[in-house]
């Protein structure tokens, strides 16, 4: 399985390099390290969100409420910042993480304790969290002029020439890598995704594990709430509206199986980068946003087709080896 996954990531990486190559024939500066670092920075939030979503998808679930969670959390911290500019930004980040986690706990509890399918639960909370954003803000925006310089500036601070936002993304990628490959919990996500029944017999609590997955997706959505609002310097009811589809698209392009149990950190990151490159490069080479969407859409379908074929190929190998043994 690992070898196959690595293959997939290599293919995706090759596609990304090809894409960069094609773009740089039209716009030479695109492939410069400086610009690629910018693209990475621009895609940071999507990468973090995709990793959170991936954990949920691994357990045969889906979290449609991440973008609404992000909007709500972003609004909460922006309003706190506007009302009490003295509250230090690290504390605001903690609050964002806590609020996001609480919303994730709510999703997870409904899935675990009431046994409602996650697509239904999070379709509901998608609307609820978005509505709650309207309720707390009264529909008003929090603009740049109401945000403190520290609130806006923190993630733009540079370390070793790289913005803090990128460092945060790198740290999150590293933590997810450790979580998924080096902890019993990470192993459980894969196990219950591949074979929930056998997992029960092996002593894994399937419901609780799914609950934890939703807590994780809620937590990262919360953190991204702060990052988003401070990056785009606006908090409104409308921010990241429909963005859950980009998050899921990044996962699917990254080879994470919607059927659960298959996926890797590298895949999710590359899937997000692929979308990030398309959205940042195409305007540069004068391709309309319509084509952007069409290209992303084609990439999703192509990814699904390739993954499905990959799994079929694996099936044939099984037969061959079974005969050989």
């Amino acid at each position: 399985m690992n070898a196959l996954l690595k293959n997939r990531e290599i293919w995706l990486l090759a596609a990304i390099l090809l894409l960069i190559g094609l773009i740089s024939t039209r716009y030479g500066a695109f492939a410069s390290p400086r610009n690629l670092a910018n693209v990475f920075n621009d895609t940071s939030i999507l990468m973090i969100l995709a990793l959170g979503q991936m954990v949920v998808i691994l357990t045969r679930s889906i979290d449609l409420s991440m973008a609404s969670n992000l909007a709500f959390t972003g609004m909460v911290v922006a309003m706190i910042n506007a009302a009490y500019p003295a509250v230090p930004v690290p504390l605001l980040m903690l609050i964002a993480a806590g609020v996001g986690l609480a919303l994730g706990v709510f999703n997870g509890a409904l899935v675990w304790k009431l046994g409602i399918p996650s697509i239904v639960v999070t379709l509901g909370t998608l609307t609820i969290y978005r509505g709650a954003t309207f309720v707390i803000s009264g529909g008003a925006w929090v603009n740049a002029d109401k945000m403190s310089p520290a609130f806006i500036g923190l993630q733009r601070m540079q370390m070793l020439g790289i913005p803090l936002l990128s460092w945060i993304a790198l740290a999150v990628i590293a933590s997810f890598f450790v979580l998924l490959t080096r902890t019993p919990l990470g192993r459980s996500f894969y196990a219950i995704g591949v074979n929930p029944t056998a997992s029960v017999y092996a002593g894994i609590d399937v419901g609780r594990t799914k609950f934890v997955a939703f807590c994780i997706s809620g937590l990262v959505a919360g953190i991204c709430g702060y990052l988003w609002v401070s990056r785009y310097v606006i908090a409104s009811v409308e921010i990241a509206n429909g963005y859950e589809l980009n998050i899921i698209a990044a996962c699917v392009i990254g080879g994470i199986s919607i059927a659960g149990g298959i996926g890797s950190v590298g895949g999710a990151v590359l899937g997000a980068l692929f979308l990030g490159i398309i959205s940042s490069a195409l305007p540069l080479i004068n391709i309309s946003p319509f084509w952007q969407m069409a290209i992303s859409g084609s990439a999703i379908i192509l990814a699904v087709v390739l993954n499905a074929r990959g799994e079929r190929r694996q099936g044939r190998i099984i037969l061959k080896k079974a005969e050989a043994i």
């Binding site: 690992n2 196990a191 056998a198 017999y201």
Partner: peptide, 16 residues
Amino acid sequence: KQGVVIGMPIFQNVSL
């Protein structure tokens, strides 16, 4: 259905 987790390597099945 209840025993092996197909798609996972042997060692991970044993240690689950």
